[in-house]
């Protein structure tokens, strides 16, 4: 089980969190202007790296806030831990 460093509550068990996938995916500024291909990219295509991955988590069973962390998908280590 991951020990997830919530920025407000500190490290908590993964079971308290909801996963939100890749971070920094902005809603298109002008959706109507998008081509089908651009719309597909926005809807369906996300990064899937083996390595550093910035991702969204929500502390649903705690403070209920969303936040962004960077984790290594090959090792499971969060960057704040790696640097600690």
């Amino acid at each position: 089980m991951l020990l997830i460093p919530c920025p407000w509550c500190g490290p908590r068990d993964e079971a308290e969190f909801h996963y939100g996938g890749q971070a920094h995916v902005a809603y298109p500024a002008d959706p109507a202007a998008l081509s089908d291909e651009e719309w597909a990219r926005y809807l369906f295509f996300r990064d899937n790296p083996k390595g550093r991955f910035a991702e969204r988590w929500s502390h649903t069973a705690g403070c209920r806030r969303w936040f962004t962390l960077t984790r290594d998908t090959a090792t499971g280590v969060f960057e704040s831990e790696a640097g600690a």
């Binding site: 083996k50 991955f53 998908t73």
Partner: peptide, 13 residues
């Protein structure tokens, strides 16, 4: 398991 991962292990819960 809910999150992206290339580790061949998951959580006990």
């Amino acid at each position: 398991d809910a999150y992206n991962s290339y580790r061949q292990r998951g959580a006990f819960h």
